[in-house]
Computed example of a mutant assay.
Amino acid sequence: MAILSSSIARKVAMALSGLFLVLFLAQHFTINITSVIDPETFNNLSHFMGHNFVVQFIAQPILIFGVVFHFIMGLVLEIRNRNARQINYVSFKGNKNSTWASRNMIISGAVILAFLGLHFYDFWFPEIVHKYVESNPLDATRYYPELLHKFESPVRTGLYCLAFVLLALHLWHGFSSSFQSMGWNNKYSKGLRGFTQFYAIFIPLGFIFIALYLHFNQ
């Protein structure tokens, strides 16, 4: 697209898509934590999300597009940045120059994308089959038992936890960088950075807690 022809436009588009996914992540966590607090509430929320027209046929396609766009844009920026580097450093000082998270955003992003593939395989595809292929009757009580069943395997639970650790690293650099890319630089910048770092730790740890709780409470 012509609008993404400049480096600044690509960075802003990357930032906006990232912030959109951060909002989705918070919403997804809010629903999932109810599986620990009150399974009935989790069932009700999941049933609503699974049968609401706006969520299913408007928000969900936008979300899928946002995920794909964010990853492709990140890949494009990574390739262009590497091609633009003309100086080969004699020595690399590791974290003195940058953090591991900032140097390996494309790696953590690729692992997260693979995790999303597993997540779709575990939840989205079975949901599509249940509703549209098998045409099963409505059952608002089925969501919690199905979620519990997914975390029976220690291997799958471990994969989820690993993905959330990498998500934390990805968010640690990416969330705050999104605001920098959009030119956010004022007296609130320090406080905002603190919030993004808190979010980068709290949300992934929350998801890890949910996964471990469901695994050990079979």
Rank of each mutant, 00 (worst) to 15 (best):
L23I: 10
E40I: 15
S189N: 08
G117N: 09
G18A: 06
Q56L: 13
L147E: 04
N104A: 04
L214D: 02
I62L: 14
E152C: 09
L192S: 06
I62W: 08
I106L: 12
F57S: 04
Y121I: 10
G183Y: 01
F57M: 02
F125Y: 13
F216C: 04
V155I: 12
F175P: 06
S7I: 06
A84K: 07
I128Y: 15
E78A: 12
E40N: 14
L75G: 08
H47E: 11
S7G: 10
V76M: 05
I64A: 15
D38S: 12
L116N: 09
T41P: 09
F207V: 09
R80Q: 15
F115D: 04
H149P: 07
H51Q: 06
P137L: 01
Y160I: 07
L19S: 03
L63T: 12
A114D: 05
L118S: 15
L147N: 03
H170E: 04
Q218L: 11
A200T: 03
S135G: 14
G74Q: 05
I79P: 15
L159W: 06
A13Y: 07
I106F: 04
F20W: 10
A163C: 04
L205R: 01
Q60E: 15
I201M: 11
P154H: 05
T41A: 08
N95G: 11
D139E: 00
I87N: 08
W172E: 03
S35F: 05
F65L: 11
R10K: 09
W172R: 10
P39H: 03
N95L: 12
S177D: 13
T34F: 15
Q180N: 11
S177G: 09
R193Y: 11
I72N: 03
A211V: 02
I37S: 02
L171H: 08
Q197W: 10
F179D: 04
A163T: 03
L23E: 03
W184S: 07
N217D: 06
F179K: 03
I72R: 04
Q27E: 14
N185M: 08
V36R: 00
Y132P: 12
